[in-house]
Design a binder for these strands. Sequence first.
DNA 1: CCTCATTCATTCACCTTGTCAACAAATGCG
DNA 2: CGCATTTGTTGACAAGGTGAATGAATGAGG
Lengths: 399, 399
Amino acid sequence: MNEVQGVCVQRRADVPTLDSLGPSARAVVRALLLAGPLSRAELARRLERSPASLTKTTRPLLISGLIREESAPSSESRGRPGAPLVLDASHHRFIGVKVTSDELYAVRADASGQVEATGHRVLADSEEATVVAEIVDLVNEMGETGSIQALGVGLAGQMSRFDHTVRSNTYLGWDQVPLARLLEQATGIPTVLSGDARALTAGVQWSGPGRGMSDFAVLTVGVGVGLGIVLEDRVLAGPTGNVGMLGHNRVSDSGPLCARGHRGCASSFLTTEAITQGIGVPLGRVDVDLATAFALAEAGNEVALRVFRDAGHALGVLIAQLVNILGLPAVILAGDGLGMLAHARPSMDAAIAEHLDPNATAPSVVAFTSGFDEWARGAAVVACQWLLVDPPTRHPESA
Amino acid sequence: MNEVQGVCVQRRADVPTLDSLGPSARAVVRALLLAGPLSRAELARRLERSPASLTKTTRPLLISGLIREESAPSSESRGRPGAPLVLDASHHRFIGVKVTSDELYAVRADASGQVEATGHRVLADSEEATVVAEIVDLVNEMGETGSIQALGVGLAGQMSRFDHTVRSNTYLGWDQVPLARLLEQATGIPTVLSGDARALTAGVQWSGPGRGMSDFAVLTVGVGVGLGIVLEDRVLAGPTGNVGMLGHNRVSDSGPLCARGHRGCASSFLTTEAITQGIGVPLGRVDVDLATAFALAEAGNEVALRVFRDAGHALGVLIAQLVNILGLPAVILAGDGLGMLAHARPSMDAAIAEHLDPNATAPSVVAFTSGFDEWARGAAVVACQWLLVDPPTRHPESA
DNA sequence: CCTCATTCATTCACCTTGTCAACAAATGCG
DNA sequence: CGCATTTGTTGACAAGGTGAATGAATGAGG
């Protein structure tokens, strides 16, 4: 007999999995994750439902322990203060993995995107079997605490909103790899793929600097230039998953050529390679990496300063183009190339001011410094969102 | 006694107004308007509902005469052919008005966007009272057939999805004019405002060349450069109604200055004024209008040809920027400046090819030639869509 | 301190709307 | 002529939303 198993564990066992919820409960959980503690009245307004409906919907969630009433009542304005509801995120765990051509980064996070553990692997090669084996190994290592709800994998390339197949990936040299199915079979955990920019954006929106903002873009600078867009609280997937290929948008008629023979591409000013080459070549040095580049600029090297000024200009033009087209009130900058801002910010601001439409309102541009874990965390967030999609989507059991 | 009133009229009286429908019926009507005749099974798939649900939802609509079964069964593939349902659009009429600083264009259209009548007024001035009076006059003239469901008004400027107040409009010199309320009071017809680019886009999507396409952009060229975006079957409104201010996006480092002192703005190559000035000034002529410009190019005038080539280039760069950012499969060109394409198309295509991201798929670029009525028709379509929004939104009865 | 307006939350009867399972209908194919 | 296939209908059922009435908790104002 096992009735003395411990109360805490018993209660946990009662907490339903996220994908077993009905659509209305799902909507409540989504809203709570997206916008922190909310009273029933506030939820009713957001979900466009009657207060009565929310009493009914939240009750079973409260009983099961999936959500909690916070003690501190929110006392803005007069009238009875609302009882803020929060999701008890600790009951559900997700693993997110970011795949690059030579490394894996992983995090285990709870439903709110709070990171509980991290992991890392160096890949011997980018063969399909190698990558799968290493991911499985990493997941087994990180998931031993049990009860992982879902696994999210972020990679560069074109993918639909919640995809399960890597179509054609030039970084990894893959073509039509059913990665999600392979990982599901090996780990037993439901798995979803997403483009890495989209994953990062989801993380930023859910539990990063974009939290609470309904409309913004995430612009990443590093090995490449990436873009994610959030409109009306939804991460844009784009009809073909193609959102964000603005690396080749022209920002100047002068400047170096890019690999495609274009002059003045954003990429040719902004990518890590553009920065290091841009500084290294004139100086006749082949050892310039990003850190060296920052150091040179810090030391007042004119070439480095100029390269960063130009990068800032390119960034500013891209931001202005984006804001002109979509009217976004905010742009969040991220990626490992972000250190450039220390020297690129003035020219970036100038370029934004210059290229912004006179009738557009200037966006707030926020730098979000983070490591590679943030990309993995984003993938974990996508995995969580996947379970909360309405209607529930699972991968077709195709070959 | 009036039981001999005539069967046809009696049936019409039974047809419910669009805004009196429940949410499920509303969704059916929306889907039928958006994507032509659809069988119940097809509707069930699109709306993600069970076939049973559609039988139930469509029955009262069929009885009331709001929708009809088309005789021709759709016999693709084997199995029982579906019975295509169409909305009987003739039961509901809408009026759309396009307001410019010196003219009004109006159309009366049915629910499917089919134009039944057109009207036009020249404005003595752009005073609020003048414009309102002329619109009311125009509506009374066009609406005498009775039973107008809603009135849509399209104007340049920033407006929310279904707005009711003109905030600040530099073209008309207006500020905070509750135009919708004024027109509702004067005409008794529910009225909604929208930005003109958004209205045109809605018309294109609902019953123009964009019909059946889920994702595309509408780029207009004329007095200004306008943009409308459709993503996942929804017309993008933008967080602040600001979608589409790309007139000042830079397309070249050379070229004339725009009014804001920028060099190489899209506007400075594309607007009607840019074209006419660009040709007139070098030739020392002040009489060049758009028609003259086209004629000059047709006659092989080098200046005119060059100006149109440059315009095509600018257009191509804008299209590439747009497609890079959003991954759109199609762009529809419209506006009264579209005649330029006869001479601008090659340079436009070249610019698209040059500036498109290597990994992006080339969009199909379609020219949609139309008169000013098309803008008014778009406003009528917006009025219809307004009644079908879920949940129903009406203007707050604020002062 | 007491009353009032205000806002939040609950209860209950009711109803809309979607689902499931079973079945009937209409077609092409062999 | 079966037979698979797809569409459409029926009826019992359940989930979930609503409106109105009520109670609860607070600040404002006298």
